[in-house]
Amino acid sequence: MNSNNLQTIYVMWLREMKRFFRAKSRVIGTLAMPFFFLFTMGFGFNSGFSLPGISSNINYIDYLVPGIIGMTMLFTSMSAGISVLWDKEFGFLKEIMVAPVSRVAIVLGRIAGGVTTALIQGILILILSLFMGFKITNPLSILLGVVFMILIGIGFIGFGVAIASIMEDTQGFSLIMQFIIFPIFLLSGTFFPITNFPNWLRPFSYIDPLTYGIDGLRGSLIGFSQFSLVLDLTVLVIFSLAMVVLGAWFFNKTEV
């Protein structure tokens, strides 16, 4: 990668940072939903009650927090990826597209910016959860958790960029919300083990990449996971690489 491309990535990242730190109300808006889930579900299920499929020596709040962090990463990353669509709507995409820079670098820059902001929000949720009684067994495990957060971020931003590149305007936005983002979220085992799903539904969880992301976060943060961490990591690395390629490919083909 030559310095020209690095410069492009940096410029896109810088823009994302400026916009992020300026849009405090939007950040509060996106963090509100995971926080409410954390708050209500966390208190609602925590009084000595254990869910089937979770061993009884795990507190529900400990089980829940990695799921909520994964959910935060999903929503913030998707919205970072889909922001290509807002740029299209407000015309700024033309300014980017007419510049003498590589489109792949533009996508990578957007991913770099989106991952940074998503990570900030995921970590904010993690910190909030500490006040709600979430216990981290080993502080070093946070590092592994961050690796999972980053991989979830890269994958879903790439996915969002691909979708936004195909769409012509923001009309179909709520369809995407209802039929893509919510199913990914609900099937991923955020609130309870996917083994609780009936047999016919379970395959959908297995093809949901977020399932592995949340499982990996659980494994690293509380030492409890359904799959091995190596499997989680492998699936996520493949998923995020594939989405970067897909996002770059579709973005390269957009006309403004």
Binding site: N4, Q7, T8, Y10, V11, L14, R15, K18, R19, R22, A23, F90, G91, F92, L93, K94, E95, I96, V98, A99, P100, V101
Partner: peptide, 27 residues
């Protein structure tokens, strides 16, 4: 250089930041 028919500015950035973004993109 091009000025499009429809506005193509990032309206969450300042004027100077829009220029700066452009200048960096063009190295």
């Amino acid at each position: 250089g091009i000025v499009f028919q429809e506005p193509a500015l990032d309206n969450r950035l300042t004027g100077r930041e829009n220029l700066d973004f452009h200048a960096r993109l063009y190295e």
